[in-house]
Amino acid sequence: MLPEVTATRYVTPLREGGSLPGIVEADDLGTYVMKFTGAGQGRKSLVAEVISGRLARALGLRVPDLVGIRLDPVIGRAESDPEVQGLLKASGGLNLGMDYLPGALGFDPLAFETDAAEAGRVVWFDALVGNVDRSWRNPNLLVWHGALWLIDHGATMIWHHNWPSAPAAAAKPYDASDHVLATFSPDLAGAAAELAPRVTEELLTEVVADVPDEWLDGEPGFDGPDAVRRAYVEVLRDRAAGVGDRITVGERSADKPSQAPEWVRVRLDRKAGK
């Protein structure tokens, strides 16, 4: 289960995120980036953060530590921003926190390098969880102490917003043309050989067990939280088996060329020998 702390002070909002996450201090003296159940994406965004974050860590990728944060809405009384105040008041109870990485820099593919092996692992993982939010427009990667860290997985597993579509999602291809690491020659074959055998039913069962019951309870079409957890396990297990063969990197299609900026297209063309 997620370790739990209690928020003691709301420090400041992070305006970069569409869900308006904020930096908070907690009773364990830690500082966290907090995501709220009262945000527009709701609790499913937090479920995606937990499952994707825990799975990434289990596969050897760097993700900030996750905690559950208990929030008393009274904290919002001192906020002058009505939007922030409303968000805090709507998010009483258990929310999600990610360890704040002080001094971390946003990943810039023109300023930082990574090798083909690490790029391949990240792209393969994003394909597994269907991450639509790690593009050159919005990398959702940090560089901390010289290493690459993965953040913001609330937009993964979008099939859980429409459970009847979930079985088909297991075989869905993944277009990595605009992935922020596409220009680093990601070693997808090596990543698949290394990571796919590790995504076992046992590992997935352990990962989804960390999602709090209260974020899964009441899901339409399911008898309870354990049934929802089982559904996540089945889709991710089936997807892991062959997703490496369904990843494409390059132009989107003949009728819809990549919308990436020129520097991305030039680097992809060079990698392809064009």
Score class of each variant (00 low, 15 high):
232 Y>M: 01
192 A>E: 13
226 D>S: 11
206 E>T: 12
208 V>N: 03
224 G>I: 04
204 L>A: 12
221 G>F: 02
212 P>Q: 06
226 D>L: 10
178 D>K: 08
163 W>S: 00
135 S>Q: 09
109 P>L: 11
164 P>L: 00
202 E>N: 13
209 A>P: 05
179 H>P: 07
228 V>K: 06
195 L>E: 06
116 A>S: 15
194 E>Q: 14
185 S>Q: 12
111 A>T: 10
235 V>S: 09
120 G>L: 06
201 E>T: 13
105 L>V: 14
184 F>H: 10
215 W>G: 00
198 R>F: 03
134 R>G: 09
109 P>S: 09
200 T>M: 04
195 L>I: 14
207 V>E: 06
160 H>L: 01
180 V>C: 14
129 V>K: 04
158 I>S: 06
139 P>W: 01
220 P>Q: 09
124 W>I: 11
210 D>M: 05
127 A>W: 06
197 P>E: 08
163 W>T: 00
200 T>L: 04
178 D>V: 11
236 L>G: 03
143 V>P: 00
225 P>N: 09
187 D>H: 08
172 K>G: 04
227 A>V: 05
141 L>F: 10
138 N>K: 15
232 Y>C: 01
123 V>H: 09
109 P>K: 12
144 W>G: 03
210 D>E: 14
141 L>Y: 10
201 E>H: 15
158 I>F: 04
119 A>N: 08
199 V>T: 03
207 V>F: 02
215 W>V: 01
186 P>S: 04
176 A>F: 06
106 G>V: 08
154 G>K: 05
221 G>Q: 05
131 N>D: 15
174 Y>A: 09
105 L>C: 12
196 A>Y: 02
175 D>E: 15
113 E>N: 13
108 D>I: 04
126 D>G: 03
189 A>S: 13
106 G>R: 10
217 D>V: 00
188 L>K: 01
223 D>L: 06
182 A>R: 01
182 A>N: 11
156 T>L: 04
108 D>K: 05
207 V>K: 11
150 L>Y: 07
193 A>G: 15
105 L>P: 06
227 A>F: 08
136 W>V: 07
190 G>H: 11
220 P>S: 07
230 R>L: 11
166 A>H: 12
205 T>K: 07
211 V>W: 01
185 S>V: 07
120 G>T: 12
128 L>A: 07
196 A>T: 13
123 V>K: 03
214 E>N: 03
223 D>Q: 14
208 V>W: 04
143 V>Y: 02
181 L>Y: 09
171 A>C: 05
214 E>F: 01
204 L>G: 11
129 V>G: 02
232 Y>H: 15
114 T>N: 04
216 L>R: 03
112 F>R: 10
210 D>P: 05
217 D>Q: 09
157 M>S: 03
142 L>F: 05
189 A>I: 07
191 A>M: 04
186 P>I: 07
116 A>P: 06
124 W>A: 13
138 N>A: 06
199 V>H: 07
181 L>G: 14
232 Y>S: 07
196 A>R: 10
150 L>P: 10
153 H>R: 12
226 D>Y: 00
227 A>G: 14
138 N>F: 03
135 S>W: 01
140 N>Y: 08
115 D>Q: 11
187 D>N: 13
116 A>T: 13
210 D>G: 03
